[in-house]
Design a protein around this nucleic acid. Structure first.
Lengths: 163, 163
DNA sequence: AGTAAATAGTTTATATGTTTAATAAGCGAG
DNA sequence: CTCGCTTATTAAACATATAAACTATTTACT
Protein backbone atom coordinates (compact mmCIF):
# COMPACT_ATOMS: atom_id res chain seq x y z
CA UNK A 1 0.00 0.00 0.00
CA UNK A 2 1.41 3.38 -0.98
CA UNK A 3 2.10 5.98 1.67
CA UNK A 4 1.65 9.65 0.99
CA UNK A 5 3.10 12.72 2.61
CA UNK A 6 4.45 12.80 6.13
CA UNK A 7 1.98 10.49 7.81
CA UNK A 8 3.82 8.07 10.13
CA UNK A 9 3.18 4.48 9.18
CA UNK A 10 1.63 3.66 12.55
CA UNK A 11 -1.14 6.23 12.10
CA UNK A 12 -4.32 5.22 10.30
CA UNK A 13 -6.21 7.48 7.93
CA UNK A 14 -8.94 8.34 10.42
CA UNK A 15 -6.60 8.94 13.35
CA UNK A 16 -5.62 12.34 14.60
CA UNK A 17 -1.95 13.29 14.82
CA UNK A 18 -0.38 14.79 17.91
CA UNK A 19 0.06 18.01 15.99
CA UNK A 20 -3.60 18.24 15.10
CA UNK A 21 -4.61 17.32 18.63
CA UNK A 22 -2.61 20.24 19.95
CA UNK A 23 -4.38 22.69 17.66
CA UNK A 24 -7.77 21.15 18.38
CA UNK A 25 -7.21 21.61 22.09
CA UNK A 26 -5.94 25.13 21.64
CA UNK A 27 -9.24 25.92 19.95
CA UNK A 28 -11.39 24.04 22.45
CA UNK A 29 -9.67 25.57 25.47
CA UNK A 30 -10.11 28.96 23.88
CA UNK A 31 -13.79 28.42 23.15
CA UNK A 32 -14.46 27.20 26.64
CA UNK A 33 -12.64 30.12 28.18
CA UNK A 34 -14.50 32.55 25.95
CA UNK A 35 -17.86 31.07 26.90
CA UNK A 36 -17.17 31.18 30.60
CA UNK A 37 -15.79 34.70 30.33
CA UNK A 38 -18.77 35.83 28.30
CA UNK A 39 -21.05 34.57 31.05
CA UNK A 40 -19.18 36.73 33.54
CA UNK A 41 -19.02 39.80 31.31
CA UNK A 42 -22.67 39.47 30.42
CA UNK A 43 -23.61 40.16 34.03
CA UNK A 44 -22.09 43.60 33.49
CA UNK A 45 -23.55 44.19 30.04
CA UNK A 46 -20.38 43.43 28.10
CA UNK A 47 -19.63 40.91 25.39
CA UNK A 48 -16.25 39.21 25.08
CA UNK A 49 -15.33 41.59 22.24
CA UNK A 50 -16.39 44.62 24.26
CA UNK A 51 -14.15 43.56 27.11
CA UNK A 52 -11.15 43.06 24.87
CA UNK A 53 -11.57 46.42 23.18
CA UNK A 54 -11.84 48.15 26.55
CA UNK A 55 -8.90 46.21 27.93
CA UNK A 56 -6.83 47.32 24.97
CA UNK A 57 -7.92 50.95 25.01
CA UNK A 58 -7.32 51.37 28.72
CA UNK A 59 -3.68 50.42 28.17
CA UNK A 60 -3.28 53.01 25.40
CA UNK A 61 -1.97 56.54 25.76
CA UNK A 62 -4.99 58.60 26.80
CA UNK A 63 -7.24 55.56 26.67
CA UNK A 64 -7.60 55.99 22.91
CA UNK A 65 -6.41 54.54 19.63
CA UNK A 66 -7.52 54.36 16.00
CA UNK A 67 -10.19 51.98 14.78
CA UNK A 68 -7.61 50.37 12.55
CA UNK A 69 -5.21 49.56 15.37
CA UNK A 70 -8.03 48.12 17.43
CA UNK A 71 -8.93 45.91 14.50
CA UNK A 72 -5.38 44.66 14.16
CA UNK A 73 -5.24 43.80 17.82
CA UNK A 74 -8.60 42.04 17.64
CA UNK A 75 -7.66 40.21 14.43
CA UNK A 76 -10.76 41.42 12.63
CA UNK A 77 -11.39 43.43 9.49
CA UNK A 78 -12.15 47.14 9.45
CA UNK A 79 -15.79 46.67 8.56
CA UNK A 80 -16.11 44.67 11.70
CA UNK A 81 -14.65 47.35 13.91
CA UNK A 82 -17.16 49.85 12.56
CA UNK A 83 -20.10 47.79 13.76
CA UNK A 84 -18.49 46.82 17.01
CA UNK A 85 -17.52 50.41 17.80
CA UNK A 86 -21.02 51.66 17.03
CA UNK A 87 -22.60 49.14 19.36
CA UNK A 88 -20.10 50.02 22.06
CA UNK A 89 -20.74 53.72 21.58
CA UNK A 90 -24.46 53.16 21.87
CA UNK A 91 -23.77 51.31 25.13
CA UNK A 92 -21.76 54.30 26.34
CA UNK A 93 -18.53 52.35 26.69
CA UNK A 94 -16.49 54.33 24.18
CA UNK A 95 -16.60 57.52 22.16
CA UNK A 96 -15.82 57.81 18.46
CA UNK A 97 -14.46 60.94 16.88
CA UNK A 98 -12.21 61.84 14.02
CA UNK A 99 -8.60 62.60 14.72
CA UNK A 100 -7.82 66.31 14.55
CA UNK A 101 -4.61 65.90 12.58
CA UNK A 102 -5.81 63.23 10.16
CA UNK A 103 -9.48 63.37 9.40
CA UNK A 104 -9.44 59.89 7.91
CA UNK A 105 -8.81 58.33 11.30
CA UNK A 106 -11.58 57.36 13.68
CA UNK A 107 -10.34 57.47 17.22
CA UNK A 108 -11.95 55.18 19.76
CA UNK A 109 -11.73 56.37 23.33
CA UNK A 110 -12.81 54.63 26.48
CA UNK A 111 -15.35 56.56 28.55
CA UNK A 112 -15.65 56.74 32.35
CA UNK A 113 -18.52 54.28 32.01
CA UNK A 114 -16.22 51.94 30.12
CA UNK A 115 -13.56 52.21 32.80
CA UNK A 116 -16.13 51.56 35.47
CA UNK A 117 -17.30 48.44 33.68
CA UNK A 118 -13.73 47.17 33.50
CA UNK A 119 -13.23 47.89 37.19
CA UNK A 120 -16.38 46.01 38.06
CA UNK A 121 -15.14 42.97 36.21
CA UNK A 122 -11.45 43.01 37.07
CA UNK A 123 -11.39 41.03 40.28
CA UNK A 124 -13.83 38.33 39.31
CA UNK A 125 -12.12 37.81 35.97
CA UNK A 126 -8.72 37.58 37.64
CA UNK A 127 -10.17 34.96 39.92
CA UNK A 128 -11.69 33.18 36.95
CA UNK A 129 -8.37 33.06 35.13
CA UNK A 130 -6.59 31.87 38.25
CA UNK A 131 -8.87 28.85 38.29
CA UNK A 132 -7.51 27.73 34.94
CA UNK A 133 -3.93 28.45 35.84
CA UNK A 134 -4.09 26.46 39.03
CA UNK A 135 -3.80 23.46 36.76
CA UNK A 136 -0.17 24.23 35.97
CA UNK A 137 2.98 25.64 37.49
CA UNK A 138 4.46 29.07 36.85
CA UNK A 139 7.18 27.40 34.80
CA UNK A 140 4.62 25.63 32.67
CA UNK A 141 2.76 28.89 32.20
CA UNK A 142 5.94 30.58 31.02
CA UNK A 143 6.63 27.80 28.57
CA UNK A 144 3.01 27.67 27.42
CA UNK A 145 3.08 31.41 26.78
CA UNK A 146 6.34 31.17 24.90
CA UNK A 147 5.07 28.40 22.64
CA UNK A 148 1.76 30.13 22.04
CA UNK A 149 3.56 33.31 21.04
CA UNK A 150 5.53 31.40 18.45
CA UNK A 151 2.36 29.73 17.18
CA UNK A 152 0.60 33.06 16.91
CA UNK A 153 3.53 34.63 15.09
CA UNK A 154 3.56 31.74 12.67
CA UNK A 155 -0.17 32.22 12.16
CA UNK A 156 0.33 35.86 11.30
CA UNK A 157 3.03 34.89 8.85
CA UNK A 158 0.70 32.43 7.18
CA UNK A 159 -2.09 35.01 7.06
CA UNK A 160 0.12 37.44 5.19
CA UNK A 161 -0.27 41.10 6.04
CA UNK A 162 -3.94 40.96 6.93
CA UNK A 163 -3.49 41.49 10.65
CA UNK B 1 -1.95 52.01 50.04
CA UNK B 2 -4.21 49.02 50.55
CA UNK B 3 -3.70 45.90 48.47
CA UNK B 4 -6.62 43.82 47.36
CA UNK B 5 -6.84 40.23 46.28
CA UNK B 6 -3.92 38.28 44.93
CA UNK B 7 -2.27 40.97 42.86
CA UNK B 8 1.51 40.91 43.40
CA UNK B 9 2.83 44.22 44.66
CA UNK B 10 5.08 44.71 41.64
CA UNK B 11 2.14 44.69 39.22
CA UNK B 12 0.30 47.91 38.53
CA UNK B 13 -3.43 48.14 38.04
CA UNK B 14 -3.27 48.43 34.26
CA UNK B 15 -0.71 45.67 33.80
CA UNK B 16 -1.55 42.18 32.61
CA UNK B 17 -0.59 39.19 34.73
CA UNK B 18 1.25 36.19 33.37
CA UNK B 19 -1.88 34.15 33.94
CA UNK B 20 -4.03 36.48 31.90
CA UNK B 21 -1.40 36.69 29.18
CA UNK B 22 -1.49 32.93 28.83
CA UNK B 23 -5.24 32.91 28.34
CA UNK B 24 -5.09 35.88 25.96
CA UNK B 25 -2.58 34.07 23.82
CA UNK B 26 -4.57 30.85 23.91
CA UNK B 27 -7.47 32.81 22.47
CA UNK B 28 -5.42 34.74 19.92
CA UNK B 29 -3.60 31.64 18.70
CA UNK B 30 -6.93 29.91 18.38
CA UNK B 31 -8.52 32.78 16.47
CA UNK B 32 -5.59 33.02 14.10
CA UNK B 33 -5.62 29.29 13.48
CA UNK B 34 -9.35 29.35 12.88
CA UNK B 35 -9.06 32.16 10.38
CA UNK B 36 -6.29 30.54 8.42
CA UNK B 37 -8.11 27.21 8.48
CA UNK B 38 -11.34 28.84 7.38
CA UNK B 39 -9.52 30.30 4.39
CA UNK B 40 -8.38 26.81 3.41
CA UNK B 41 -11.74 25.15 4.04
CA UNK B 42 -13.54 27.91 2.17
CA UNK B 43 -11.84 26.88 -1.04
CA UNK B 44 -13.73 23.60 -0.68
CA UNK B 45 -17.03 25.12 0.38
CA UNK B 46 -16.71 24.36 4.08
CA UNK B 47 -16.77 26.54 7.16
CA UNK B 48 -14.65 25.81 10.20
CA UNK B 49 -17.70 24.37 11.96
CA UNK B 50 -18.57 22.19 8.99
CA UNK B 51 -15.10 20.73 9.00
CA UNK B 52 -15.20 19.94 12.68
CA UNK B 53 -18.57 18.26 12.46
CA UNK B 54 -17.40 16.14 9.55
CA UNK B 55 -14.13 15.34 11.28
CA UNK B 56 -16.06 14.17 14.30
CA UNK B 57 -18.67 12.17 12.41
CA UNK B 58 -16.12 10.38 10.28
CA UNK B 59 -14.53 9.00 13.45
CA UNK B 60 -17.87 7.70 14.73
CA UNK B 61 -19.28 4.23 14.33
CA UNK B 62 -20.97 4.25 10.94
CA UNK B 63 -20.05 7.90 10.39
CA UNK B 64 -23.05 8.95 12.44
CA UNK B 65 -24.02 10.26 15.87
CA UNK B 66 -26.83 12.18 17.53
CA UNK B 67 -27.25 15.94 17.20
CA UNK B 68 -26.83 16.19 20.95
CA UNK B 69 -23.47 14.45 21.01
CA UNK B 70 -22.24 16.59 18.16
CA UNK B 71 -23.26 19.65 20.13
CA UNK B 72 -21.38 18.47 23.20
CA UNK B 73 -18.26 17.90 21.16
CA UNK B 74 -18.58 21.31 19.51
CA UNK B 75 -19.35 23.04 22.82
CA UNK B 76 -22.52 24.59 21.46
CA UNK B 77 -26.16 24.47 22.45
CA UNK B 78 -28.72 22.24 20.81
CA UNK B 79 -30.44 25.11 19.05
CA UNK B 80 -27.17 25.82 17.39
CA UNK B 81 -26.71 22.29 16.11
CA UNK B 82 -30.12 22.41 14.49
CA UNK B 83 -29.19 25.37 12.32
CA UNK B 84 -25.71 24.11 11.58
CA UNK B 85 -26.99 20.66 10.63
CA UNK B 86 -29.62 22.13 8.34
CA UNK B 87 -27.09 24.20 6.48
CA UNK B 88 -24.80 21.19 6.18
CA UNK B 89 -27.64 19.03 4.92
CA UNK B 90 -28.52 21.64 2.33
CA UNK B 91 -24.87 21.56 1.22
CA UNK B 92 -25.09 17.77 0.92
CA UNK B 93 -22.40 17.13 3.54
CA UNK B 94 -24.58 15.20 5.98
CA UNK B 95 -27.97 13.55 6.23
CA UNK B 96 -30.40 14.00 9.08
CA UNK B 97 -32.88 11.38 10.09
CA UNK B 98 -34.53 10.19 13.24
CA UNK B 99 -33.10 7.20 15.06
CA UNK B 100 -35.16 4.08 14.53
CA UNK B 101 -35.05 2.98 18.14
CA UNK B 102 -35.52 6.38 19.78
CA UNK B 103 -37.57 8.74 17.68
CA UNK B 104 -36.51 11.73 19.77
CA UNK B 105 -32.97 11.49 18.48
CA UNK B 106 -31.81 13.19 15.31
CA UNK B 107 -28.94 11.26 13.80
CA UNK B 108 -26.41 13.17 11.74
CA UNK B 109 -24.59 11.05 9.20
CA UNK B 110 -21.74 12.04 6.93
CA UNK B 111 -22.47 11.55 3.22
CA UNK B 112 -20.06 10.43 0.49
CA UNK B 113 -19.90 14.09 -0.53
CA UNK B 114 -18.91 14.97 3.01
CA UNK B 115 -16.19 12.32 3.01
CA UNK B 116 -14.92 13.56 -0.31
CA UNK B 117 -14.71 17.11 1.04
CA UNK B 118 -12.70 15.90 4.01
CA UNK B 119 -10.39 13.94 1.74
CA UNK B 120 -9.83 16.97 -0.45
CA UNK B 121 -8.78 19.01 2.57
CA UNK B 122 -6.81 16.44 4.56
CA UNK B 123 -3.35 16.86 3.13
CA UNK B 124 -3.32 20.62 2.89
CA UNK B 125 -4.67 20.98 6.41
CA UNK B 126 -2.07 18.57 7.77
CA UNK B 127 0.57 20.67 6.08
CA UNK B 128 -1.00 23.80 7.51
CA UNK B 129 -0.93 22.42 11.02
CA UNK B 130 2.66 21.24 10.60
CA UNK B 131 3.65 24.83 9.92
CA UNK B 132 2.51 25.85 13.39
CA UNK B 133 4.07 22.86 15.06
CA UNK B 134 7.44 23.44 13.48
CA UNK B 135 7.79 26.16 16.10
CA UNK B 136 8.14 23.64 18.90
CA UNK B 137 9.56 20.21 19.67
CA UNK B 138 7.59 17.00 20.06
CA UNK B 139 8.21 17.17 23.79
CA UNK B 140 6.83 20.68 23.95
CA UNK B 141 3.82 19.58 21.95
CA UNK B 142 3.18 16.77 24.42
CA UNK B 143 3.42 19.14 27.34
CA UNK B 144 1.32 21.78 25.61
CA UNK B 145 -1.37 19.20 24.93
CA UNK B 146 -1.30 17.96 28.49
CA UNK B 147 -1.66 21.46 29.93
CA UNK B 148 -4.40 22.39 27.47
CA UNK B 149 -6.32 19.27 28.40
CA UNK B 150 -6.22 20.27 32.04
CA UNK B 151 -7.30 23.80 31.18
CA UNK B 152 -10.19 22.51 29.11
CA UNK B 153 -11.28 20.14 31.84
CA UNK B 154 -11.20 23.00 34.32
CA UNK B 155 -13.26 25.06 31.90
CA UNK B 156 -15.87 22.36 31.68
CA UNK B 157 -15.97 22.17 35.45
CA UNK B 158 -16.53 25.91 35.68
CA UNK B 159 -19.23 25.76 33.03
CA UNK B 160 -21.14 23.20 35.03
CA UNK B 161 -22.94 20.50 33.10
CA UNK B 162 -23.64 22.54 30.03
CA UNK B 163 -21.21 20.71 27.75
C1' DA C 1 -0.63 73.53 -7.92
C1' DG C 2 -2.65 69.46 -9.75
C1' DT C 3 -3.39 64.81 -10.12
C1' DA C 4 -2.81 59.97 -9.06
C1' DA C 5 -2.20 56.52 -5.67
C1' DA C 6 -2.51 54.98 -1.14
C1' DT C 7 -4.88 54.87 3.24
C1' DA C 8 -8.87 54.67 6.59
C1' DG C 9 -13.45 53.98 7.37
C1' DT C 10 -18.17 53.19 6.23
C1' DT C 11 -21.93 51.03 3.92
C1' DT C 12 -24.38 47.21 2.02
C1' DA C 13 -25.50 42.57 1.40
C1' DT C 14 -25.09 38.14 3.06
C1' DA C 15 -23.97 34.34 6.03
C1' DT C 16 -23.09 32.36 10.29
C1' DG C 17 -23.13 31.84 14.97
C1' DT C 18 -25.29 32.56 19.57
C1' DT C 19 -28.63 32.73 23.49
C1' DT C 20 -33.06 32.39 25.59
C1' DA C 21 -37.61 30.90 25.85
C1' DA C 22 -41.37 28.43 24.25
C1' DT C 23 -42.92 24.33 22.11
C1' DA C 24 -43.43 19.57 20.54
C1' DA C 25 -42.69 14.82 20.67
C1' DG C 26 -41.05 10.41 22.35
C1' DC C 27 -39.42 7.52 26.04
C1' DG C 28 -39.61 5.15 30.52
C1' DA C 29 -40.68 4.53 35.37
C1' DG C 30 -44.16 3.97 38.35
C1' DC D 1 -51.53 5.25 31.23
C1' DT D 2 -49.84 9.26 32.70
C1' DC D 3 -46.21 12.18 34.55
C1' DG D 4 -41.70 13.74 34.19
C1' DC D 5 -37.46 13.62 31.75
C1' DT D 6 -34.83 13.93 27.57
C1' DT D 7 -34.14 15.54 22.89
C1' DA D 8 -34.75 18.42 19.33
C1' DT D 9 -36.96 22.31 16.83
C1' DT D 10 -38.62 26.90 16.33
C1' DA D 11 -38.61 31.86 16.77
C1' DA D 12 -36.82 36.30 17.93
C1' DA D 13 -33.15 39.23 18.79
C1' DC D 14 -28.58 40.20 18.39
C1' DA D 15 -23.52 39.69 17.61
C1' DT D 16 -20.07 38.60 14.66
C1' DA D 17 -17.79 38.07 10.32
C1' DT D 18 -16.55 38.76 5.34
C1' DA D 19 -16.34 40.83 0.72
C1' DA D 20 -17.17 44.40 -2.34
C1' DA D 21 -18.30 48.94 -3.46
C1' DC D 22 -17.92 53.53 -2.03
C1' DT D 23 -16.47 58.11 0.34
C1' DA D 24 -13.20 61.03 2.14
C1' DT D 25 -8.60 62.36 3.16
C1' DT D 26 -3.77 62.42 2.85
C1' DT D 27 0.58 61.75 0.55
C1' DA D 28 3.65 61.43 -3.30
C1' DC D 29 4.91 62.79 -7.63
C1' DT D 30 5.25 65.67 -11.65
Amino acid sequence: MPRRGLMPKDRQKGDVSLEEKVMIFVVMASEMFKKNSTAIFGQHGLTFSHYNVLKYLVACEGGRDTAGNVGKRMLVTGANVTGLAKRMEKAGLIERKNDEKDERLTMLQITPVGRKSLDAIREIQEQHISEYMQTCSKEQQEELLSVLKRILRKGKQLAGSKY
